[in-house]
Design a protein around this nucleic acid. Structure first.
Length: 458
RNA sequence: GCCGGGGUGCCCGAGCGGCCUAAGGGGCUGGCCUUGAGAGCCAGUGGGCCAUGGGGCCCGCGCGGGUUCGAAUCCCGCCCCCGGCGCCA
């Protein structure tokens, strides 16, 4: 049984080093991991020989009597003394080894564009007819034609109001100032129509994915440290994860985490794969690395709702399933009518777990930019190794690590920002996408066609 | 949260300091047999290290420590499950 990354580390560390370089990370980690693994194995071998010696002596003892027995016991104690020191060393080596192995990023897929940061991300397709304000035509072309795509757009002469102002001042359906007083920045109160919209978006995503056969899951919102480390890398842990004081519990940053944990430690027979799940949960994120970015409004917040897709797959099917996940997300955004592009994330911008990642970015008319709404990753066997999730091949009962994939379906607050900007009319009215109607109609006081601005008091 | 009972391999289930190299059964995988299926028979069925022409060894009985020459078995801490009491939406 083998983990692809450990196999490569042992058999061909130089190739693994190339993958780390592609991510613009320090490749010396590979040398260190290689050396530590080797020394661990050597030490282990020596210890096992000593243990064997000790076992042989121990087995002889009950057959002996008197002085001979005493002699053997002294002999056994001597071996134990030798072992004690070596085992201390082994324990240190093993801790070091696991720490290093757990810090290794995934192998980068060949189709991932090379580059140190998000400016090297490559758009692979566009959908929809974006509304582009006259002042943003140039920068719109920078984001489309520069990559060789001719995207049809509708030029508008009025500049749409940004999502944060729409929420707070035009519609007056959100209050981030009060939330900041009572909870801190990046929190929010949302009211009435926006709350209905939030719930409708989640229902819309759940309805679509369950109708495609995905199993609906309401997961735990907190997980133990050991599970968290099986699901995410150290950087994410530091930047995103909230801890519960005094307990070994951490708030999830997405339903991906508990969904990956759902089969932790299990061996799944190949015929039940792929297992497709759709989870719904709140997401808690510290946003520690975000600085002052997107400080206003509800685009980047400490807490939001998300519907998440998650798949356990056979390795030979995972790349195909990744396309299914992104196309599901696209279907949802097409249904909403939000213009978007799908980008292939550059090697240096990939998180450590992902072998490849697509983002779905919605056009934001008030910002004149495409912004991330959905993130879709194939993490291959990176999580499966850490959580010990394997598949069993019927033929020969062979066990191997399976692949896991995850993708946003709908993240409610972000999607709301896209709706506030894309379906805004010059008078501040926000037209509600028709697909949400049936999910709004169930509430007597929910808006159906549009959300209207609060009349200015004169 | 407190008191009591429990956690053994893929599943059921014995064992309760050295004969455990974890009995026995079931399932699953491979082989033999068969026109085919079934039955039957044989073998395999936790993880790892070394050697890779079969092989050798270490670790493993919820998790982590400890006692002992020797622990599934004894001691301590933690997790989880079942029952009772308490608390609670």
């Amino acid at each position: 049984m083998s983990w692809s990354i450990l196999k490569l580390l042992r058999e061909n560390p130089e190739v693994l080093k190339e993958h780390v370089k592609k991510r613009f990370m320090d490749p010396s980690i590979i040398d260190e991991a290689y050396r530590t693994d080797l020394e661990w194995r050597k030490t282990l071998t020596v210890i096992q020989e000593l243990r064997h010696k000790h076992n042989v002596i121990s087995k002889e003892i009950p057959k002996l009597k008197g002085e001979e027995k005493e002699k053997k016991i002294r002999e056994a104690k001597e071996v134990l003394r030798q072992l004690e020191e070596l085992e201390k060393k082994l324990k240190q080596l093993e801790e070091r080894r696991m720490k290093l192995l757990f810090s290794l990023p995934n192998i980068v897929h060949e189709s991932v564009p090379m580059g140190p940061d998000d400016s090297y991300n490559v758009p692979i397709r566009f959908w929809g007819k974006p509304k582009v304000w006259s002042g943003y035509i140039e920068q719109f072309k920078e984001q489309t034609e520069k990559y060789g795509f001719k995207v049809e757009y509708e030029e508008i002469s009025w500049k749409p109001v940004g999502h944060a102002d729409m929420l707070e001042n035009v519609l007056k359906l959100g209050d981030t100032y009060k939330a900041a007083q009572v909870a801190g920045s990046r929190f929010y109160y949302l009211f009435n129509d926006i709350v209905f919209l939030d719930m409708a978006l989640l229902a819309y995503a759940i309805d679509y994915l369950t109708s495609k056969g995905y199993t609906l899951v309401l997961p735990p919102y907190m997980l133990r440290y050991k599970i968290m480390m099986g699901v995410i890398d150290m950087d994410t842990f530091k930047d995103a994860i909230y801890k519960i004081e005094g307990e070994d519990l951490y708030l999830i940053a997405t339903a991906e985490h508990p969904l990956a944990a759902l089969h932790a430690g299990e061996d799944l027979p190949e015929e039940i794969l792929p297992l497709k799940y759709v989870g719904i949960s709140p997401c808690f994120r510290k946003e520690a690395g975000a600085g002052n970015r997107d400080l206003k409004g509800i685009f980047r917040v400490h807490q939001f709702h998300k519907v998440e897709q998650f798949i356990y797959a056979k390795p030979e099917e995972s790349w195909e399933l990744m396309e299914e996940l992104i196309s599901n997300a696209e279907h949802l955004f097409q249904g909403l009518g939000i213009p978007y592009r799908v980008v292939n994330i550059a090697s240096g911008d990939l998180g450590a777990p992902a072998a490849k990642k697509y983002d779905l970015e919605a056009w934001m008319p008030a910002q004149g930019r495409y912004r991330e709404m959905v993130s879709c990753s194939n993490v291959t066997d990176w999580q499966a190794f850490r959580l010990r999730i394997r598949l069993i091949r019927r033929r020969g009962m062979i066990k191997e690590y399976l692949h896991t994939l995850n993708s946003t379906a709908i993240a409610s607050t972000r999607t709301i920002t896209a709706i506030l900007e894309n379906f805004q009319e010059p008078d501040g009215t926000v037209v509600i996408p028709k697909v949400l109607r049936k999910y709004l109609e169930i509430f007597k006081n929910a808006p159906i066609d549009a959300i209207h601005p609060v009349k200015k008091e004169t």
